[in-house]
Structure formats: structure tokens, C-alpha cells
Design a protein around this nucleic acid. Structure first.
Lengths: 344, 344
DNA sequence: TTGAAAGCGCTACCAT
DNA sequence: ATGGTAGCGCTTTCAA
């Protein structure tokens, strides 16, 4: 651990207080109203060029920066889109999505803010978000109930969107049903003649949100076939994988859906190390279509996931903000398709 | 691309306006002052139990949530710590660090907010942040100059901390000099007798912040030895790696520092595919000590990186906030040590 | 073209 | 124990 040294604090000069528009007005020799007109380019009012210049100079000289809270208090609304930061570790796929979303919302002139509420949950969290009076809230993942939605709306949020595994009353829901991921994998394995299918279920807490539906998806895919499913709880480390591999023959599986590409790499490695052939003895399928899958040998079969584009979501938010009468709906937005390579 | 359908907007009921403390006061039959005392548990004032109850009930019935902007406007300060979201894709290492930091700051009763300013740069960005009047600003990476620091401080930020590759006047700087990473790798390779060392430099824009110092670090490590450095620009895809591998023999290198573990995997795979032996023909060293390095065969030698703990940084921020007189200093906080496995 | 002033929601001082 | 009220920084009528 790298320590940040603690230093003794020598005395220092007092900080000048923060300049306000009144200070600018005083320095420019005009009223606060005029300052506001000039700095906001208010078109309904004509201000003479010399005055404009004086105001701008005064503002620059003082290092004036408007006070967002005061402004939105006065205006009665803000353009802040609040998005709680997920407290689960997220992959590159999701990061990219969030990035696109932020970019698109910025283009639409919203201020995007990720709120790091760690300990809070449920309505308590919703209340904390509501205190900031965001014009819209985008909640990734579960955890927001109808109550929470109500709290947010009562506090002025004109759009509440959740990216959730299940519908939420009152909110615009982008249904991210990971079942389709498992389904793709399961269908693929069944079609290729596999009958004893293992499904890796990560032991990491917080991954259950994804792993449970993926497992259910595989179950759905094999329904009506002779194939059977075996759950394989697994921690993301080599020893755990080694232990799993050691009892592999006794499990009698001919295929495994490894939750995602990273777990797939872990499993493939462990199987290799105990002499289980992939795909001949056991087929392996990952998910997420990460680069690493392409680099493995045999090349990893995987499920490619399509999230909605950040732009689409940004537009949904914008429409909902501009038309609060819009009735919230629930849409399936998770796409999944198998990418067949060499491991299956 | 998954499309989010656009729906026609039917008419809908008007939204009741947001309840304020005045509404609560009216409903409870008390003054706004009393409401404030009750809801904030003001210890300087005694409120009778029946009154408290009435206030709480009224607040709950109305779904009252205090208005953070109004509160901090009145108070003259907030407990918001603002952190611009990095617009470079960040790895698991850094994500973990940010998470820890958020957690630690929450424990200290700060509200952590990641600000998604995409298009802004330099002082423009600083001004946008300053509008929110955060009590502290933590800037990951370069891009904040002394000007920006001044803007933030003039706007009331009591602590400005940057995690930067180089010192910034006026700010508390946690120097993340990635040179030490390259140095560790370089020293290791030289000690093991390698003399013609390639250094992968990712072509991805935005990674230059890291790759340049890492390259310089390797240069530093070989200074005074007979070893030579060859820069190897490389995009993160298989074809590019294949092209690099194809001309590998002609490069005459006996070792390569691959920027990080992911690039190392890419390079190792490409070298393998053209029959270059690792480590016998060419040694490979990665960086970041990701799990995938342990799963490769040969196991990947890598540089383990130690970031400061989130807790330490949170404490630094807290101290700086409580004692604005504290003079800003610059500290090296990036630790690096070689993890020797099988690829070198 | 510019200024005076009200008021957004909240808290803290001073009365009662 | 409770209420009246000023004022945080800003925008926006309304007057001049």
C-alpha cells in the first residue's frame, strides 16, 4: 500500500470569498439585472456594446462563475440527468454504453451526473437522488421500486428510466433480460448435439443479477429436449477452477456455458490443465464477445450481446423530459446472438 | 442496433407541484422554522414530541424531500466532492480504486458526484465544475492547469486534488508516474540478459498518457547498458498484431514490453501463431497484473501496480477540506514491482 | 437601455 | 416551545 504522507499545516492566507453577480455589477458600475442579461445573452433585452464589454471584463477580472444551485433554484428546474453509479464491477461493454449515453446526453445539453451513493438502498437511495432535483434519472440495474419512482416523480423528475431485469411500475423500463443470453448459448449447444450441459454460476456477490437470468435462459433453451442442466458454482480464481476441473470427469458433462468470456477462459485453462479436451471432450461457450475470446486457442465460441445504443436512450430521455405526459412503457432491448468459433 | 420504439404521446394529467417545507408546515399547522428544526434534529432547539410527530407525518404524507440546492445555497457550502468522469476507457484496476474512494468518502459523509463533461476541456471544464460549487474536486489524469485550479478555488473549492502524470501548481498532486512501470519491466529484462527490447505503444488515442511514460521508463532502465529500445506502435486488434508478428524476425528483438497484460496477450498470441517461441525466442512482459496473465501459457510475467488506497485519498481530501490552509504538495504514489512468471 | 425588487426553498437568528 | 423573518445568488417581470 502506498501511503500518502500527512503533513503539518502551516498558517496560510485567508481565502477571499466567492464573487457573485452583485460583485460583478458593482465593479462594472451596473445593476445585477444587467449583469444577468449580458452574461446570459438574453435576447429579449438590448444592452449597449460598451456596457456589455464592461460587464464581461468585470466578470473575467473577478473570475466570476455563476452559481448553478442558485440559478436552478430560481428557474425552478435544472437540466441534470442523474445516474447512480452501479456498485457492481462492470465490464467494458457496459462502460462503453454509459460513455455513449453521457456523450449523447451532453449533445442534448443535459448535465450528466453519476451519483455515488454507496450505503443507500431502495427508497432511501431514491430520496437521496431526489434531493438534487434532477430532471431525469437513469437507474442501471434493479433496486428501484414503484415507491422509489413515485418519490422521484413527486420531486420533479420528469423522466425515470431503469435498465432493469424486470418491469418497474411508473418508470420507462429498458428490459435487460439476460435470459436471452443463456438461451442463445443453450440453443446452440443443444443443436450441436450436447446433452449434459454445465452452467457456471459465479459466486461473486452482485453478479447474481446477471447469472441467475442467464442460467434460467439455458434452462428455457433445453426445455423439451433430453438435455440436462448442471449448476456449477465457481469463484473467479485458479484454485476454485482447479477443484472444479478435478471432478470434471465425474460430472460427466459434454458442454459448459461459462457465464461469460472471462470465466470461460478460466474454465478452459483449468480443463486443459487436467487434460480435458476442448471442444472434443467438452464444448465451452462464453458470453460478452470480448477480445480475449478471439485470442484463445481454441477460439472461444461466445454470445454477442447488443445493448441499446446510448443515443437511443438519450433520445428516449429527452422525449420523456419534454413530454411528461408520455406514458412509460417497457421494452425488451437486450439482443443476443451466438458467435460460433472453435470451442464448441 | 436495438431500437427503442418511439411512441405517440397521449394526453396525461398535470403533475402536482413539488412539496416544499412550507407545505409541510401548513399541513402540520406549524411554522416553516419548526419543520426545519424537526426534520434536521436541530439540537439547539427543543420541540415537543407531539409536534415532532405531526411534522413527520405531514412530511411523509406529502412525500416531502428537502431541496439540496436551496439548502446549500442557504448554508453557503455543500459536502459535494466532484470528480470528472475520465473519458478514456479505464481498466479494472482504476475502477476498483474509484470505487474504494467513493466508499471512503461516503463514510466521511461526503456526497460523491462524477461529472460527465464530455466536450469540455481545460479551463472551460473547470468553470463547468465550479458552477456546482463542490467542496472538493478530484481530477483523474491530466488536463487541469494552474488556471483551472485557481478557478475552482475562487469558486469555493476547499480542496483540489489531481491524479496526474505531472505536478500542477496549487493542487494537491498525487503523482501517477507510469515511468516506474516501464522501469520495472526494463530493469527486469536487462537483468535477465536481454539486449534488443521492443516496447509496444498502443495506437489508441487517449492511451498516450500512460504509454508514453511507460516507454520513457523502459528507456531510463536501459540507460547505461548495451540494450536498445525499439518502439512498436500497435492497434488493439488481431490483424495489426499479425502484421507486427510477420516482421518479427526481421526486427531481431529478444524481448518485448507489451504495455499491459491485454496487449501482451495479443502479442503472445500473434507470436505463437508465426512460430516465435515465448520466452525462448522472445521474452514478453505485460503490466497491470490482471487475472488473465495468470491464465496464459506460458504464464505472463507482468508489472504489478500499486495505486494509493481510496481510503488514503479520501483522508487527504477530508484534511484539506477541514484545513484549507494546508499547503498543497506533490507526492509520488505509484508503486510498481515485477512479477516474474514464465514468459520472461 | 437600465434599475428596483420579488421570490425560488431553506436555515438560523431573534422574538415571543 | 414555537414563529417571524432575513437572506443565500440568481433571473425576470415591471417601471422608469
Amino acid at each position: 500500500m502506498v501511503q500518502i504522507p500527512k503533513e503539518p499545516a502551516p498558517p496560510a492566507p485567508l481565502q477571499r470569498s466567492v464573487p457573485t453577480s452583485a460583485d460583478v455589477a458593482r465593479l462594472a458600475g451596473v445593476s445585477r439585472a444587467t449583469v444577468s442579461y449580458v452574461l446570459n445573452n438574453t435576447s429579449a433585452v438590448r444592452i449597449s456594446e460598451p456596457t456589455r464589454r464592461r460587464v464581461h471584463e468585470a466578470a473575467k477580472e473577478l473570475g466570476y462563475v455563476p452559481h448553478a444551485a442558485a440559478r436552478s433554484l430560481r428557474a425552478g428546474h435544472s437540466r441534470m440527468v442523474l445516474m447512480p453509479t452501479p456498485n457492481v464491477p462492470i465490464g467494458p461493454l457496459y462502460s462503453q454504453f454509459i460513455n455513449d449515453l453521457q456523450w449523447a446526453l451532453s449533445r442534448l445539453d443535459y448535465t450528466v451526473v453519476q451519483y455515488g451513493g454507496v450505503g443507500l438502498r431502495g427508497d432511501e437511495a431514491a430520496r437521496a437522488w431526489a434531493e438534487l432535483r434532477p430532471v431525469a434519472v437513469i437507474v442501471p440495474g434493479e433496486g428501484l421500486g414503484p415507491q422509489g419512482v413515485a418519490i422521484l416523480k413527486r420531486s420533479g423528475a420528469r423522466a425515470v428510466v431503469t435498465l432493469s431485469p424486470e418491469p418497474v411500475e411508473g418508470a420507462h423500463v429498458l428490459l435487460l433480460d439476460h435470459g436471452v443470453v443463456g438461451e442463445s448459448a443453450g440453443r446452440h449447444l443443444v443443436e450441436r448435439g450436447h446433452r449434459r450441459i454445465g452452467v457456471v454460476v459465479p459466486e461473486e456477490p452482485g453478479l447474481g443479477v446477471f447469472s441467475r437470468p442467464r442460467l434460467e435462459g439455458v434452462r428455457r433453451a433445453v426445455r423439451g429436449t433430453e438435455a440436462t442442466i448442471t449448476e456449477l458454482p465457481l469463484a473467479y480464481d485458479e484454485e476454485a477452477a482447479g477443484r472444479l476441473a478435478a471432478r470434471w470427469r465425474s460430472l460427466g458433462l459434454d458442454a459448459v456455458f461459462a457465464y461469460n468470456d472471462e470465466y470461460a477462459m478460466l474454465v478452459m485453462r483449468a480443463l486443459r490443465d487436467v487434460g480435458v479436451g476442448v471442444p472434443d471432450d467438452t464444448a465451452v461457450v462464453g458470453a460478452d464477445d470480448l477480445m480475449l475470446g478471439r485470442l484463445l486457442r481454441p477460439r472461444l465460441s461466445t454470445v454477442h450481446i447488443e445493448l441499446p445504443s446510448g443515443r437511443d436512450l438519450a433520445e428516449l430521455v429527452d422525449r420523456a423530459v419534454r413530454d411528461p405526459a408520455m406514458v412509460p412503457t417497457t421494452h425488451d432491448v437486450l439482443g443476443a446472438r451466438i458467435v460460433h468459433r472453435e470451442s464448441s
